[in-house]
Design a protein around this nucleic acid. Structure first.
Lengths: 155, 155
DNA sequence: AATAAAATGTTTGACAATCAAACAATTATT
DNA sequence: AATAATTGTTTGATTGTCAAACATTTTATT
Protein backbone atom coordinates (compact mmCIF):
# COMPACT_ATOMS: atom_id res chain seq x y z
CA UNK A 1 0.00 0.00 0.00
CA UNK A 2 1.22 3.45 -0.88
CA UNK A 3 0.84 5.02 2.53
CA UNK A 4 3.57 2.80 3.95
CA UNK A 5 6.04 4.48 1.73
CA UNK A 6 5.36 7.80 3.41
CA UNK A 7 5.48 6.33 6.88
CA UNK A 8 8.75 4.63 6.14
CA UNK A 9 10.48 8.00 6.36
CA UNK A 10 8.54 9.09 9.38
CA UNK A 11 10.18 12.45 9.85
CA UNK A 12 8.29 15.49 11.04
CA UNK A 13 9.13 17.30 7.86
CA UNK A 14 7.39 14.71 5.72
CA UNK A 15 4.38 14.89 7.93
CA UNK A 16 4.31 18.62 7.54
CA UNK A 17 4.10 18.23 3.83
CA UNK A 18 1.28 15.73 3.99
CA UNK A 19 -0.57 17.79 6.56
CA UNK A 20 -0.20 20.97 4.56
CA UNK A 21 -1.82 19.51 1.48
CA UNK A 22 -4.51 17.83 3.51
CA UNK A 23 -5.43 21.12 5.12
CA UNK A 24 -5.54 22.80 1.75
CA UNK A 25 -7.70 20.12 0.21
CA UNK A 26 -9.96 20.05 3.25
CA UNK A 27 -10.36 23.80 3.12
CA UNK A 28 -11.17 23.69 -0.56
CA UNK A 29 -14.00 21.24 0.03
CA UNK A 30 -15.24 23.23 2.98
CA UNK A 31 -15.52 26.39 0.94
CA UNK A 32 -17.35 24.63 -1.88
CA UNK A 33 -19.71 22.98 0.60
CA UNK A 34 -20.55 26.44 1.86
CA UNK A 35 -21.26 27.90 -1.54
CA UNK A 36 -17.98 29.66 -2.24
CA UNK A 37 -17.13 28.44 -5.71
CA UNK A 38 -15.77 31.36 -7.72
CA UNK A 39 -12.57 31.99 -5.77
CA UNK A 40 -9.71 29.79 -4.61
CA UNK A 41 -8.32 29.07 -1.17
CA UNK A 42 -5.48 31.42 -1.95
CA UNK A 43 -7.93 34.16 -2.83
CA UNK A 44 -9.58 33.63 0.54
CA UNK A 45 -6.22 34.00 2.14
CA UNK A 46 -5.82 37.38 0.51
CA UNK A 47 -9.22 38.36 1.88
CA UNK A 48 -8.02 37.25 5.30
CA UNK A 49 -4.86 39.31 5.00
CA UNK A 50 -6.89 42.36 3.99
CA UNK A 51 -9.21 41.94 6.95
CA UNK A 52 -6.28 41.71 9.35
CA UNK A 53 -4.29 44.56 7.84
CA UNK A 54 -4.42 48.24 8.47
CA UNK A 55 -4.87 50.15 5.20
CA UNK A 56 -3.44 47.45 2.93
CA UNK A 57 -2.04 48.43 -0.46
CA UNK A 58 -1.05 46.38 -3.49
CA UNK A 59 2.58 46.29 -2.43
CA UNK A 60 1.99 45.60 1.24
CA UNK A 61 -0.34 42.74 0.36
CA UNK A 62 2.21 41.29 -2.04
CA UNK A 63 4.84 41.36 0.71
CA UNK A 64 2.70 39.96 3.50
CA UNK A 65 1.21 37.24 1.34
CA UNK A 66 4.70 36.18 0.29
CA UNK A 67 5.33 35.00 3.83
CA UNK A 68 2.50 32.50 3.91
CA UNK A 69 2.37 31.62 0.27
CA UNK A 70 5.76 32.11 -1.29
CA UNK A 71 7.11 34.99 -3.30
CA UNK A 72 4.56 37.06 -5.18
CA UNK A 73 5.19 40.09 -7.37
CA UNK A 74 3.15 43.23 -7.15
CA UNK A 75 2.06 42.63 -10.73
CA UNK A 76 0.48 39.34 -9.75
CA UNK A 77 -1.14 40.89 -6.72
CA UNK A 78 -2.50 43.73 -8.82
CA UNK A 79 -4.18 41.24 -11.13
CA UNK A 80 -5.62 39.20 -8.25
CA UNK A 81 -7.01 42.25 -6.50
CA UNK A 82 -8.63 43.41 -9.71
CA UNK A 83 -10.32 40.02 -9.98
CA UNK A 84 -11.54 40.05 -6.38
CA UNK A 85 -12.85 43.58 -6.87
CA UNK A 86 -14.71 42.62 -10.03
CA UNK A 87 -16.27 39.68 -8.20
CA UNK A 88 -17.46 42.00 -5.46
CA UNK A 89 -15.41 40.65 -2.54
CA UNK A 90 -13.34 43.78 -2.00
CA UNK A 91 -13.41 47.48 -2.78
CA UNK A 92 -10.70 50.06 -3.11
CA UNK A 93 -10.52 53.58 -1.85
CA UNK A 94 -8.05 56.06 -3.21
CA UNK A 95 -5.58 57.56 -0.76
CA UNK A 96 -5.72 61.31 -0.29
CA UNK A 97 -2.12 61.69 0.77
CA UNK A 98 -0.56 59.66 -2.04
CA UNK A 99 -2.50 59.58 -5.26
CA UNK A 100 -0.69 56.53 -6.57
CA UNK A 101 -2.06 54.17 -3.94
CA UNK A 102 -5.42 52.69 -3.03
CA UNK A 103 -6.44 51.01 0.19
CA UNK A 104 -8.44 47.81 0.09
CA UNK A 105 -11.28 46.62 2.30
CA UNK A 106 -13.74 43.74 2.34
CA UNK A 107 -17.29 44.24 1.12
CA UNK A 108 -20.17 42.54 2.98
CA UNK A 109 -19.79 39.71 0.46
CA UNK A 110 -16.14 39.46 1.43
CA UNK A 111 -16.96 39.52 5.13
CA UNK A 112 -19.36 36.63 4.60
CA UNK A 113 -16.57 34.54 3.12
CA UNK A 114 -14.38 35.42 6.06
CA UNK A 115 -17.00 34.08 8.44
CA UNK A 116 -16.99 30.79 6.60
CA UNK A 117 -13.23 30.81 6.69
CA UNK A 118 -13.22 31.43 10.44
CA UNK A 119 -15.57 28.51 10.91
CA UNK A 120 -13.08 26.29 9.18
CA UNK A 121 -10.29 27.67 11.26
CA UNK A 122 -12.21 26.87 14.42
CA UNK A 123 -12.95 23.35 13.30
CA UNK A 124 -9.29 22.88 12.55
CA UNK A 125 -8.15 24.24 15.87
CA UNK A 126 -10.62 21.93 17.58
CA UNK A 127 -8.93 19.03 15.85
CA UNK A 128 -5.55 20.21 17.01
CA UNK A 129 -6.85 20.59 20.54
CA UNK A 130 -8.34 17.13 20.39
CA UNK A 131 -5.16 15.43 19.26
CA UNK A 132 -2.63 17.54 21.10
CA UNK A 133 -2.70 18.37 24.78
CA UNK A 134 -2.63 21.99 25.82
CA UNK A 135 0.91 21.72 27.10
CA UNK A 136 2.08 20.04 23.92
CA UNK A 137 0.43 22.71 21.83
CA UNK A 138 2.33 25.31 23.77
CA UNK A 139 5.61 23.49 23.25
CA UNK A 140 4.79 22.96 19.64
CA UNK A 141 4.14 26.61 18.92
CA UNK A 142 7.41 27.63 20.53
CA UNK A 143 9.36 25.00 18.62
CA UNK A 144 7.90 25.95 15.31
CA UNK A 145 8.52 29.58 16.00
CA UNK A 146 12.19 28.94 16.68
CA UNK A 147 12.42 26.64 13.71
CA UNK A 148 10.93 29.19 11.36
CA UNK A 149 13.63 31.71 12.16
CA UNK A 150 16.47 29.28 11.67
CA UNK A 151 15.82 27.97 8.20
CA UNK A 152 17.63 30.60 6.21
CA UNK A 153 20.85 29.58 7.91
CA UNK A 154 20.94 26.33 5.97
CA UNK A 155 23.46 26.75 3.18
CA UNK B 1 6.17 45.49 10.71
CA UNK B 2 4.47 42.81 8.65
CA UNK B 3 5.55 39.87 10.72
CA UNK B 4 3.41 41.04 13.64
CA UNK B 5 0.36 40.49 11.55
CA UNK B 6 1.16 36.83 11.28
CA UNK B 7 2.01 36.46 14.94
CA UNK B 8 -1.20 38.18 15.94
CA UNK B 9 -3.11 35.03 15.01
CA UNK B 10 -0.57 32.75 16.57
CA UNK B 11 -2.28 29.48 15.81
CA UNK B 12 -0.38 26.36 14.95
CA UNK B 13 -2.10 26.21 11.62
CA UNK B 14 -0.79 29.58 10.57
CA UNK B 15 2.68 28.59 11.60
CA UNK B 16 2.42 25.47 9.50
CA UNK B 17 1.71 27.56 6.47
CA UNK B 18 4.62 29.87 7.10
CA UNK B 19 6.93 26.98 7.86
CA UNK B 20 5.89 25.07 4.79
CA UNK B 21 6.77 27.89 2.44
CA UNK B 22 9.98 28.62 4.28
CA UNK B 23 11.08 25.04 3.91
CA UNK B 24 10.25 25.12 0.23
CA UNK B 25 12.10 28.34 -0.35
CA UNK B 26 15.05 27.16 1.71
CA UNK B 27 15.20 23.93 -0.25
CA UNK B 28 15.06 25.79 -3.52
CA UNK B 29 18.08 27.90 -2.57
CA UNK B 30 19.91 24.85 -1.30
CA UNK B 31 19.49 23.04 -4.59
CA UNK B 32 20.64 26.02 -6.62
CA UNK B 33 23.65 26.49 -4.31
CA UNK B 34 24.58 22.91 -5.07
CA UNK B 35 24.31 23.26 -8.82
CA UNK B 36 20.88 21.81 -9.42
CA UNK B 37 19.26 24.43 -11.59
CA UNK B 38 17.27 22.72 -14.32
CA UNK B 39 14.64 21.02 -12.17
CA UNK B 40 12.29 22.21 -9.44
CA UNK B 41 11.84 21.14 -5.83
CA UNK B 42 8.76 19.24 -6.91
CA UNK B 43 10.76 17.40 -9.53
CA UNK B 44 13.25 16.43 -6.85
CA UNK B 45 10.38 15.11 -4.82
CA UNK B 46 9.40 12.87 -7.70
CA UNK B 47 12.98 11.61 -7.84
CA UNK B 48 12.76 10.91 -4.11
CA UNK B 49 9.54 8.98 -4.55
CA UNK B 50 11.07 6.94 -7.34
CA UNK B 51 14.08 6.11 -5.21
CA UNK B 52 11.88 4.97 -2.34
CA UNK B 53 9.43 3.00 -4.46
CA UNK B 54 9.53 -0.53 -5.68
CA UNK B 55 9.04 -0.64 -9.45
CA UNK B 56 7.22 2.68 -9.75
CA UNK B 57 4.96 3.27 -12.75
CA UNK B 58 3.33 6.42 -14.11
CA UNK B 59 0.09 5.74 -12.26
CA UNK B 60 1.63 4.69 -8.98
CA UNK B 61 3.80 7.80 -8.96
CA UNK B 62 0.80 9.99 -9.69
CA UNK B 63 -1.03 8.45 -6.74
CA UNK B 64 1.82 8.56 -4.23
CA UNK B 65 2.85 12.06 -5.16
CA UNK B 66 -0.73 13.23 -4.69
CA UNK B 67 -0.40 12.58 -0.98
CA UNK B 68 2.48 14.97 -0.43
CA UNK B 69 1.74 17.44 -3.16
CA UNK B 70 -1.98 17.48 -3.87
CA UNK B 71 -3.91 15.77 -6.60
CA UNK B 72 -2.03 15.00 -9.79
CA UNK B 73 -3.36 13.28 -12.90
CA UNK B 74 -1.48 10.55 -14.70
CA UNK B 75 -1.34 12.84 -17.72
CA UNK B 76 0.59 15.42 -15.74
CA UNK B 77 2.87 12.77 -14.30
CA UNK B 78 3.49 11.35 -17.75
CA UNK B 79 4.66 14.74 -18.97
CA UNK B 80 6.87 15.31 -15.93
CA UNK B 81 8.51 11.91 -16.22
CA UNK B 82 9.22 12.50 -19.88
CA UNK B 83 10.95 15.73 -18.94
CA UNK B 84 13.04 14.11 -16.20
CA UNK B 85 13.99 11.34 -18.60
CA UNK B 86 15.03 13.79 -21.30
CA UNK B 87 17.18 15.64 -18.74
CA UNK B 88 18.90 12.39 -17.80
CA UNK B 89 17.73 12.08 -14.19
CA UNK B 90 15.69 8.92 -14.67
CA UNK B 91 15.36 6.04 -17.09
CA UNK B 92 12.52 3.71 -17.89
CA UNK B 93 12.48 -0.02 -18.44
CA UNK B 94 9.60 -1.75 -20.13
CA UNK B 95 7.78 -4.38 -18.13
CA UNK B 96 7.84 -7.92 -19.51
CA UNK B 97 4.59 -9.01 -17.89
CA UNK B 98 2.49 -6.03 -18.94
CA UNK B 99 3.53 -4.36 -22.13
CA UNK B 100 1.62 -1.17 -21.35
CA UNK B 101 3.75 -0.20 -18.37
CA UNK B 102 7.31 0.95 -17.76
CA UNK B 103 9.22 1.01 -14.50
CA UNK B 104 11.28 4.03 -13.59
CA UNK B 105 14.65 4.27 -11.86
CA UNK B 106 17.20 6.97 -11.08
CA UNK B 107 20.27 7.35 -13.24
CA UNK B 108 23.61 8.20 -11.57
CA UNK B 109 22.77 11.82 -12.29
CA UNK B 110 19.48 11.35 -10.45
CA UNK B 111 21.23 9.64 -7.54
CA UNK B 112 23.56 12.59 -7.23
CA UNK B 113 20.60 14.92 -6.80
CA UNK B 114 19.19 12.62 -4.18
CA UNK B 115 22.37 12.88 -2.18
CA UNK B 116 22.10 16.64 -2.20
CA UNK B 117 18.48 16.31 -1.20
CA UNK B 118 19.38 14.01 1.68
CA UNK B 119 21.93 16.54 2.87
CA UNK B 120 19.19 19.13 3.05
CA UNK B 121 16.94 16.74 4.87
CA UNK B 122 19.64 16.09 7.45
CA UNK B 123 20.28 19.77 7.97
CA UNK B 124 16.57 20.27 8.45
CA UNK B 125 16.25 17.44 10.92
CA UNK B 126 19.19 18.86 12.83
CA UNK B 127 17.27 22.09 13.15
CA UNK B 128 14.21 20.27 14.40
CA UNK B 129 16.34 18.39 16.91
CA UNK B 130 17.93 21.61 18.03
CA UNK B 131 14.67 23.44 18.65
CA UNK B 132 12.57 20.54 19.85
CA UNK B 133 13.47 18.09 22.56
CA UNK B 134 13.46 14.40 21.77
CA UNK B 135 10.35 13.81 23.85
CA UNK B 136 8.55 16.72 22.23
CA UNK B 137 9.45 15.44 18.82
CA UNK B 138 7.95 12.11 19.71
CA UNK B 139 4.74 13.74 20.93
CA UNK B 140 4.67 15.95 17.92
CA UNK B 141 4.90 13.10 15.45
CA UNK B 142 2.08 11.25 17.14
CA UNK B 143 -0.14 14.34 17.23
CA UNK B 144 0.42 15.14 13.61
CA UNK B 145 -0.23 11.56 12.65
CA UNK B 146 -3.60 11.60 14.41
CA UNK B 147 -4.40 14.99 13.03
CA UNK B 148 -3.68 13.94 9.47
CA UNK B 149 -6.29 11.21 9.58
CA UNK B 150 -9.00 13.42 11.03
CA UNK B 151 -9.17 16.26 8.57
CA UNK B 152 -11.60 14.79 6.08
CA UNK B 153 -14.23 14.70 8.81
CA UNK B 154 -14.56 18.47 8.73
CA UNK B 155 -17.74 19.23 6.83
C1' DA C 1 -12.89 -17.77 -28.91
C1' DA C 2 -14.92 -13.60 -29.59
C1' DT C 3 -16.38 -9.58 -27.83
C1' DA C 4 -16.78 -6.13 -24.45
C1' DA C 5 -14.91 -3.74 -20.61
C1' DA C 6 -11.22 -1.95 -17.95
C1' DA C 7 -6.61 -0.34 -17.22
C1' DT C 8 -2.29 2.07 -18.61
C1' DG C 9 -0.03 5.58 -20.65
C1' DT C 10 0.36 9.47 -24.11
C1' DT C 11 -1.00 13.44 -26.40
C1' DT C 12 -3.53 17.57 -27.04
C1' DG C 13 -6.07 21.93 -26.38
C1' DA C 14 -7.44 24.94 -23.12
C1' DC C 15 -6.95 27.51 -19.09
C1' DA C 16 -5.09 29.74 -14.92
C1' DA C 17 -1.14 31.44 -12.24
C1' DT C 18 2.82 33.71 -12.38
C1' DC C 19 6.85 36.44 -13.65
C1' DA C 20 9.79 39.97 -15.60
C1' DA C 21 9.95 43.90 -17.98
C1' DA C 22 8.04 47.99 -19.90
C1' DC C 23 5.26 51.64 -18.85
C1' DA C 24 2.64 55.76 -16.67
C1' DA C 25 1.72 58.44 -12.81
C1' DT C 26 3.14 60.37 -8.69
C1' DT C 27 6.20 61.54 -4.96
C1' DA C 28 10.85 62.27 -2.93
C1' DT C 29 15.59 63.81 -3.32
C1' DT C 30 19.25 66.44 -5.04
C1' DA D 1 13.97 72.18 -11.72
C1' DA D 2 15.77 68.05 -12.70
C1' DT D 3 16.50 63.46 -11.47
C1' DA D 4 15.60 59.37 -8.97
C1' DA D 5 12.64 56.34 -6.57
C1' DT D 6 8.12 54.44 -5.61
C1' DT D 7 3.55 52.64 -6.71
C1' DG D 8 0.66 50.37 -9.49
C1' DT D 9 -0.87 48.46 -14.15
C1' DT D 10 -0.41 46.08 -18.29
C1' DT D 11 1.53 42.80 -21.40
C1' DG D 12 3.81 38.72 -23.50
C1' DA D 13 5.89 34.62 -22.44
C1' DT D 14 6.25 30.64 -19.65
C1' DT D 15 4.86 27.05 -16.79
C1' DG D 16 1.88 23.78 -14.54
C1' DT D 17 -2.13 21.58 -14.74
C1' DC D 18 -6.36 19.33 -16.12
C1' DA D 19 -9.87 16.91 -18.74
C1' DA D 20 -10.81 14.48 -22.54
C1' DA D 21 -9.69 11.85 -26.56
C1' DC D 22 -6.97 8.33 -28.05
C1' DA D 23 -4.06 3.89 -28.79
C1' DT D 24 -2.47 -0.12 -26.83
C1' DT D 25 -2.82 -3.92 -24.03
C1' DT D 26 -4.90 -6.76 -20.58
C1' DT D 27 -8.90 -8.71 -18.13
C1' DA D 28 -13.65 -10.13 -17.83
C1' DT D 29 -17.92 -11.66 -19.87
C1' DT D 30 -20.61 -13.95 -23.01
Amino acid sequence: MDYELIEARGTIIDQFMVLYHQILSSQKKFLINHGVTDITVQDVHILETISLSNKPTVSSLANVTSVTRGKITKGTMSVELKKLEKLGYIEREKSKQDRRVSYFALTPKGEAVMEIHDEFHEALNDKVAKYTSEVDTEVLIKSLDALIGSLDKIK
